[in-house]
Design a protein around this nucleic acid. Structure first.
Length: 756
DNA sequence: TAAAAGACTTGGAACAATGTTC
DNA sequence: GAACATTGTTCCAAGTCTTTTA
């Protein structure tokens, strides 16, 4: 598995996946937080190292050495401590729901020092390719890189551009250069799109020089229920205080949702709801089961129906108002350009909807007020005004970050941000940089693979673990798997946080040797199930890692994401675990496109090929979705259409046949024409039929797979653009409007010969 | 230096808008 | 133009990785 190609084949075909594997299965529910009274880690460690019946004697020697080495290793200490805590927790709480002390992070302490250079490099007016990076050098992305080098690089690249692009770009050249210090307000954005990718990037670590915006839009205030909408407790009407009523409506709005049947959700909700009640209410309302929210629920349903049934005019009015809000708050000015803000509305209060078995689901997400808000903007901009009579928590001017507004949410205590749209310069640059890093990995991936294969034989356990984990991250596109605070979130894992219970080893399975079965909940509690044959050495290592461990012990007990990423950083500048996902996704797309696209195919067939290539990536990355509720029905409908079309086709063919026969007898122009018309009709119907059949295939194959995430986040858009150009497929068939805006840089720069 | 905080990307579901069919 | 299907957009949770703090 040294070359890209074979490697990727592994990825595409490797393992049996997607066998009805959507989301946390019952198994997990049962398994969750099982209470076990197992021995402490240190004891385990001892017994492990002392264990003498290892099959592989060299392994044993290694372990013995390891024992010495790790006696005082900080990493181990950490892991042990961590595990002890986890175990303590498990022992403490029967159902594992008791919270645990905060404990996370492993972040490497190294801080990149960036030269403090406040001089704004004003962009050049002449056509430049400052940002077009070559695969061998994405150092332009690093602020440290000095300008002269950039120029040289770009001069080199400038030749690559086609002349017609040059004229195009002249026309759309932005006006940035006119205001050298970037501090004056922008002139009106020209109608043409700004090509930020043709400009120079900041090299001083700053993200902008000028930022002005209007602040966030707050959630509308609570509107009390009309008096005829009643709440009942224990069958009796009860008028709730406004605070309690508001929280009650959050629950009522979700009444039809599965959430409200879940114990944790109900428990959390009730606890938080009670906090909002008056003393009197608190005394009276003691049992959620006795609460009757149905009138509220019906009221909201009726409201939603009414909204749907609104007249055209009313709908238009709302639309106009939304548009007004968008125009006023939805844009900011960043360095002379009007840029779209992604989420300018503050999240409204409601009940927290954690995914999977989230211990905090149902908790009250409190309303965010101006005094919770931190504004970030330029000193010399017109600062956003807080609503009358209120104050912002803080107004700061930090141009080393990209966010405009932030606040701390009350469920996890984490910070939320308002940032720019994906089409913005600031997001686009980062995105581009991501793919360039992945392309650099392409150049050294063989070396890295060879290295981790070597490391499988290392004397040090931590190195072996690191190497095996990296193999999985590379081969299976697993996520890194940061440590998580137990009890704070759903129990999900990634590679480094895999536990013994998440894998099963089969020396032989279905005629294959050394098979590993993965079964765990990953991000968003989406199940990852995969059976993959691995190399013997990996297999033996896994056996070793699992020795004398309990099911809920860490598989890689001498590894965490910080250690792994530090190692990766040494292998390649800028390399982290997630780069492998980007790299493998993009390279897989490129290979699959090459393999699947046939020049003779028509456009729909080519698009099917594209979707199949996209699908291969989505499967690799385990991007699953719940099959749409209407899936079966819509498949049926499609089949009906296909059948009808087939009928139509045979009719048309019969017509053609008789027309031909007719023409043979008559031998006149009119009947000849008729034959032509009939011929065309047959052709048209054949095409339509083919289209429908392709659609059916595509849909069936896509039942449980979500293509969007990989398309938006993992696939270098230049691959798709190049493919479109090469085969004459309109790019609109692959990317919708929003996606085209996000990938404008790629659409503009990629030619048909682009190679990832 | 480990832990915590902060910043930013990735993720599927829900909702809204648009397209299609009758 | 109503009803339904499909596609696009928004929402906000949950990851990764970096930076700061104690």
């Amino acid at each position: 598995m040294s070359g890209d190609h074979s490697h990727s084949e592994d990825q595409v075909d490797g393992g049996s996946r997607f066998n009805d594997s959507h989301k946390h299965k019952d198994k997990y529910k049962e398994k969750e937080h099982k209470h076990k009274d197992h021995k402490k880690d240190k004891e385990r460690d001892k017994s492990k190292h002392g264990n003498s019946d290892h099959k592989d004697s060299s392994d044993k020697k290694h372990r013995d050495k390891e024992k010495m080495k790790h006696k005082d290793g900080s990493t181990d200490k950490y892991k042990d401590k961590h595990k002890e805590k986890r175990k303590e927790e498990k022992m403490k709480s029967f159902d594992g729901k008791v919270k645990k002390e905060k404990e996370n992070g492993f972040a490497s302490p190294h801080v990149k020092s960036e030269p403090e250079d406040d001089i704004y490099h004003s962009p050049k007016h002449e056509k430049s390719l400052k940002r077009e990076r070559d695969d061998d050098n994405d150092s332009e992305f690093k602020p440290k890189k000095i300008k002269t080098e950039i120029k040289t690089e770009n001069d080199k690249r400038a030749k690559k551009r086609k002349p017609d692009e040059d004229t195009k770009s002249k026309k759309t050249k932005n006006k940035k250069g006119e205001v050298a210090d970037g501090k004056k307000k922008a002139k009106k954005e020209p109608e043409e799109k700004w090509k930020w990718w043709e400009e120079e990037r900041y090299t001083d670590g700053s993200k902008w020089k000028f930022l002005e915006h209007k602040g966030p839009v707050f959630a509308p205030p609570y509107e009390p229920l009309p008096s005829n909408v009643k709440f009942y407790y224990d069958g009796k009407h009860m008028k709730l205080s406004p605070g309690a009523e508001e929280v009650a409506t959050f629950f009522a709005k979700m009444l039809d949702h599965e959430y409200t049947t879940k114990d944790i959700f109900r428990k959390n909700f009730f606890k938080d709801w009670r906090k909002e009640m008056t003393a009197e209410e608190k005394a009276k309302l003691t049992d959620l089961k006795k609460c009757d929210f149905s009138e509220m629920s019906d009221y909201f349903k009726a409201q939603s129906e009414a909204r749907k049934a609104m007249t055209k005019d009313e709908k238009l009015k709302i639309k106009a108002e939304n548009e007004r809000l968008l125009q006023e708050y939805g844009f900011c000015i960043m360095d002379n350009h009007k840029e779209r803000i992604a989420n300018f509305r503050i999240e409204p209060p409601g009940l927290f909807r954690g995914r999977g078995d989230h211990p905090k689901m149902g908790m009250l997400k409190r309303r965010i007020r101006p005094q919770d808000i931190i504004i970030n903007c330029s000193k010399d901009s017109e600062h956003p005004k807080p609503p009358p009579g209120t104050k912002w928590k803080e107004v700061r001017h930090d141009n080393k970050v990209t966010w405009l507004v932030s606040w701390t949410e009350n469920i996890q205590g984490s910070i939320k941000y308002i940032m720019l749209n994906p089409s913005s310069r600031i997001k686009g640059e980062k995105d581009w940089q991501k793919y360039e890093t992945a392309r650099r990995l392409k150049k050294c991936v063989d070396r890295i693979r060879n290295q981790y294969r070597e490391d499988w034989k290392s004397k040090e356990m931590r190195i072996r673990q690191r190497a095996v984990a990296l193999y999985f991250i590379d081969k299976l596109a697993l996520r890194a798997g940061n440590e998580k605070e137990e009890g704070e979130t759903a129990d999900t894992v990634g590679c480094c946080s895999l536990r013994v219970e998440h894998i099963k080893l089969y020396p032989e399975n279905d005629g294959q040797e050394y098979v590993v079965e993965f079964d765990f909940l990953g991000k968003d509690s989406i199940r990852y199930y995969n059976k993959v044959p691995v190399e013997k050495r990996v297999f033996k290592n896994l056996q070793l890692f699992m020795e004398n461990k309990e099911p809920d012990d860490d598989l890689f007990d001498r590894l965490n994401t910080s250690v792994l990423n530090k190692h990766l950083q040494e292998l390649m500048d800028g390399l982290t675990a997630k780069v492998f996902r980007t790299y493998n996704a993009s390279i897989t797309l490129q290979q699959q496109l090459k393999e699947l696209t046939s020049g003779e195919d028509n456009v729909p067939a080519k698009i099917l090929s594209y979707n199949r290539a996209n699908r291969a990536v989505a499967i690799l990355c385990n991007h699953q979705r719940a099959p749409p509720k209407t899936f079966e029905k819509s498949m049926q409908n499609l089949q009906t259409k296909i059948d009808a079309k087939r009928g139509q086709l045979s009719d048309a063919k019969r017509d053609l046949k008789s027309a031909k026969a007719d023409a043979k007898i008559r031998r006149d122009e009119k009947s000849k024409k008729t034959v032509e018309t009939k011929k065309k009709a047959v052709q048209r119907i054949e095409e339509q039929l083919m289209k429908l059949e392709v659609q059916a295939t595509d849909r069936e194959e896509n039942k449980q797979i979500a293509l969007g995430t990989s398309k938006l986040n993992y696939l270098d858009p230049r691959i798709s653009v190049a493919w479109c150009k090469k085969w004459g497929i309109p790019v609109e068939k692959i990317y919708n409007k929003t996606q085209r805006e996000k990938f404008a840089w790629a659409i503009d720069m990629a030619e048909d010969d682009y190679e990832f």
